[in-house]
Amino acid sequence: MNLTLHVWRQAGPSEAGRLVTYDAPDVSPEMSFLEMLDVVNERLIERGQEPIAFDHDCREGICGSCSLVINGVPHGPRRGTATCQLHMRTFSDGDHIWIEPFRARAFPIVRDLIVDRSAFDRIIQTGGFIGVSTGSAPDANAIPIPKAVADRSMDAAACIGCGACVAACPNASAMLFTAAKISHLGLLPQGRPERTKRALAMVQRMDLEHFGGCTNYGECHTACPKEIPLETIALLNRDYLKASLVSRD
């Protein structure tokens, strides 16, 4: 099939960007979206032009490198699917496809479709861990954890840190990302001792990084390739409220 792409090109963080139109002829429906871009890039390189820069790595939907807002939707039209796992059979011959970078003040554009998501790392640094140094752990089976609790924790822990939640949110809020970590750790007995501190610190960092606030649109959950549940955000809110009331700091 033949497609027309409208791709955001931007030479650097402080340069002006614009949408550039490219033809993508002879696209096989079996290609992944990124393979389609690879083919477009190969043609650009053969013509001596600079290829479209985009982040990608594992191409198995787990590393969280790939991004892209495809036709206004982070990771494209297929629910629960990262861009790298999206295949061209989702599109039809003659389609126009808009490809833009994740947009948020907290995610400055590095080049073309690549953005800087290091704000997420800084949120984790403030409390997204359990403070246990190597060697000090008790036996793994010392603390039983009900299966249902472990499963809920795992649901939240599945977050790949891609930032689609931020890109999808009209407020560019990082609530789903932060809530996923707060839920993953807070639900486990091992994470309880730091629960208060974690909620206060991570929310503060999130605000400092200029992510927006949550207005309960639900766009984040819909865009999330791992479909992290919205109830994690409720848990964050509750933890934060409780922490604000009980913390002696």
């Binding site: 752990a137 793994a140 603390i143 299966k147 472990a150 499963d151 795992m154 994470g191």
Partner: peptide, 22 residues
């Protein structure tokens, strides 16, 4: 043996049985 202990303490949500053990 130590690795599993360490990872559980870090909050790795390994699969569990209904009794709560790994």
């Amino acid at each position: 043996l130590n690795i599993i202990d360490q990872c559980v303490a870090q909050g790795v949500p390994f699969a569990r049985e209904y009794g709560g053990l790994l």
